[in-house]
Simulated assay, not measured.
Amino acid sequence: MSMNPGGSEGRLLAVLERSWRPVALLVACFAVWWAITSTQLVPPYLVPSPGTTLGVMTEKSSYLWQHTWVTTYETVLGFVIAVVIGVLAAVVMVYSTTVEKTLYPVLLFAQVIPKIAIAPLFVVWLGFGLTPKVVVAVLIAFFPVVISMVTGLKSVDPEMLQLAATMGASPLKTFAKIRFPASLPHLFSGLKVAVTLAVTGAVVGEFVGANEGLGFVILQANGNLDTPMLFAGLLVMSLIGVVLFVLVEIAEQLMLPWHASRRGEAATTTL
């Protein structure tokens, strides 16, 4: 016999409560788009109607899916590599002041450089295959991961660390039991930013030199003045970012049910 018969209904209502505002905003954006095109305030060859764009997406679904899969693979691979390298770099920086003082300015310098400006170099060095796209995705996604992880590792209560040392916990056990769990909320904040930036990085790499992927689709459509296909490529690219963001957020909810931000969701959803 269920102790909480309304539990599933409560969760569904909570999801609907959190979702209706962004859904309403999205519907409003599509309504404005439709109104602009239906009244011909802008010529159709500049801004196609939502119906025309969705029609192209349906008619060319196999073509778009093929290139969507390529961009998604590049994005996910670049994101995973950025997470692994970023977390390891953050751990080393937190435990070594010398490394932090040496590496941090270099990271800031690398972040300031526009990736679109150096992407052609990766094509020259690495060719037109998968590697340069993944490298650009890694470079763009790396910075928020390492910064958020460093912040998380440094935000641990010093009294907790002193208590662990007093009880004879080794540095490895202190990291595994205290530092790393405490850094996860900050890390997931960085991951949600990084995963959307990874999409941008993959597409930027495809802009520079590629014969497949959504960046290639958008460039081809732009060159052919095929605005419906261009808009379709942009919509699919945005959809990839949204889906990946939601997946990271679901992982956060599964791994951090104890965090205060999760306990406070019921209060914030009523605002």
Rank of each mutant, 00 (worst) to 15 (best):
M1V: 13
M1G: 12
P5A: 06
P5V: 06
G10E: 13
R18M: 14
S19R: 08
W20E: 13
R21C: 08
V23I: 15
L25N: 10
V27Q: 10
A31S: 11
V32L: 05
S38T: 15
Q40D: 11
L41R: 15
L41P: 13
L41Y: 15
V42E: 05
P44H: 09
Y45W: 10
Y45K: 06
S49D: 02
T52I: 04
T53F: 00
L54H: 01
G55T: 00
G55D: 00
E59D: 13
S61D: 09
Y63W: 15
Y63A: 07
L64R: 02
T68Q: 00
V70K: 11
T71I: 01
E74R: 11
E74V: 13
F79V: 00
I81M: 08
A82N: 02
A82K: 02
V83Y: 04
V84E: 02
V91C: 12
Y95T: 09
T97E: 05
V99M: 09
V99G: 10
T102A: 15
L103Y: 03
L107T: 10
L107K: 06
A110F: 06
K115G: 04
P120T: 04
L126T: 07
G127W: 02
G127T: 01
T131D: 10
P132G: 02
V134I: 08
V135T: 10
V135E: 07
V135N: 07
V138S: 06
V138I: 09
I140H: 05
I140M: 10
A141N: 02
A141D: 04
F142N: 03
F142M: 05
F143M: 12
V146S: 04
M149L: 05
D157T: 07
D157R: 08
P158W: 01
Q162I: 06
Q162T: 09
L163N: 15
M167G: 09
L172C: 09
L172K: 14
K173I: 15
A176G: 09
I178E: 08
R179L: 14
F180V: 09
A182W: 11
S183Q: 05
L184T: 05
K192F: 05
V195I: 07
G201T: 03
F207P: 02
V208R: 14
V208Y: 11
N211E: 08
E212I: 12
V217T: 07
I218P: 12
L219M: 12
L219H: 11
Q220W: 12
Q220P: 11
A221N: 02
N224G: 07
N224L: 13
T227K: 02
M229H: 01
G233H: 01
V236G: 04
V236R: 04
I240A: 07
G241Y: 02
L244E: 01
L247Q: 09
V248T: 09
E249H: 09
E249N: 07
H259L: 07
A260I: 14
S261M: 12
R263C: 07
T268V: 11
